[in-house]
Amino acid sequence: MKDMNPQDIAGEYREYTLTYYDGTSRKVLVTDIETPYPDGKLIVSTTDLQGIITHANQAFIDMSGYTREELIGQPHYILRCPEMPKAAFRDMWETIQAGKTWHGYVKNLRKDGGYYLVYATVLPNFKDGKIVGYTSVRRKPSRRKMEEALQAYARMREEETA
């Protein structure tokens, strides 16, 4: 996956290099600009077993800042924000690979370096008893619960980087 492009970034940014579970690395550029999650909007996407995006609805496009063409075929970690602890995503993958539904609060990175906050539900899709992919639905979170989750994530990040 390509590094983020400074030309796409709105405002001053910090630079991080993220290494994902599959060993690939990417330079991400991050600002502190939040795009508020609109009431009533639902981001819907599907991925294959490897987490490669196969469907993105209009809300996903609006909130992430990417075009549909830029999202389809990319790993879902294109949205990974450096402030999210790896353990949160490890927990998610373990849960959904075991055939269960995962819920959690997530800070997502936009194409322009800003972020948006969501309450995410990810569930496995079955065909003939086998998991064939995953559906993810993101909605507006409760502000208080989101703040609590972000504080917990900050502590988890400290432990991960210690």
């Binding site: 819907v44 599907t46 539904t101 539900t121 569930l123 899709n125 065909k127 559906t135 993810s136 639905v137």
Partner: peptide, 11 residues
């Protein structure tokens, strides 16, 4: 149809 059913399930 399957996609819509998964969406309902997620909600």
């Amino acid at each position: 149809a399957e996609f819509m059913m998964n969406l309902i399930e997620a909600l």
